[in-house]
Amino acid sequence: MFFNKETKDIYWDTELNEVRQRNNRFQVRHILSRPHTEWTGLKGRVSMDLVEEFIPRVGKDSNILFCACGPTEFTRATIQ
C-alpha cells in the first residue's frame, strides 16, 4: 500500500509493477489523499479500516514483511 497525495507523488511505479509481475506474493496498491477527478483508484488517508481491507491479521509465525516510511506523523499513524 503506497499512500500519496497526488499521482505526481507516486515514485517507482514502473519498477514496483515489474516486481509484482515477477512475484505473485508482491502486491501494489496506490491510495491518494488528493486525487484528480480522473483517478479511479483508492482514495483516502492511512486508517485501520483501509489497511485491514488488504492486509490479513497474522500470527506470530507469519512470514509477512510490513514497512512504514514517510513523515513522522504518517509513520506513527501507520504503526498504530
Score class of each variant (00 low, 15 high):
Ile10Leu: 09
Val58Asn: 04
Val51Arg: 01
Arg29Asp: 12
Cys67Ala: 15
Thr78Glu: 00
Val28Glu: 09
Phe54His: 11
Met48Cys: 13
Asn24Ala: 13
Gln21Lys: 13
Glu18Phe: 04
Phe26Arg: 02
Asn23His: 07
Glu15Asn: 14
Cys67Phe: 09
Cys67Gln: 08
Leu50Pro: 00
Phe66Asn: 14
Thr75Ala: 07
Glu53Phe: 03
His30Ser: 04
Val19Met: 07
Asn23Lys: 08
Gln27Arg: 11
Phe26Trp: 05
Pro35Thr: 07
Ala68Pro: 01
Leu65Lys: 11
Ser33Met: 06
Val28Gln: 11
Ile79Thr: 06
Leu16Gln: 12
Asn23Thr: 04
Cys69Leu: 13
Glu15Val: 13
Cys67Thr: 13
Arg57Ser: 15
Pro35Glu: 04
Leu42Ile: 09
Ile64Cys: 13
Thr14Glu: 15
Arg57Thr: 14
Val58Met: 14
Gly59Met: 06
Lys60Tyr: 05
Arg29His: 14
Ile10Cys: 05
Val46Ala: 02
Leu50His: 02
Asp49Ser: 12
Ala77Tyr: 00
Arg76Trp: 01
Asp13Pro: 02
Arg76Gln: 06
Gln80Pro: 02
Ser62Trp: 10
Met1Ala: 11
Ser33Tyr: 07
Thr75Tyr: 01
Glu73Thr: 05
Trp39Leu: 09
Lys60Glu: 09
Lys43His: 08
His30Glu: 03
Arg20Asn: 13
Glu52Pro: 02
Leu65Pro: 02
Arg57Asp: 14
Asn4Ala: 14
Asn23Tyr: 06
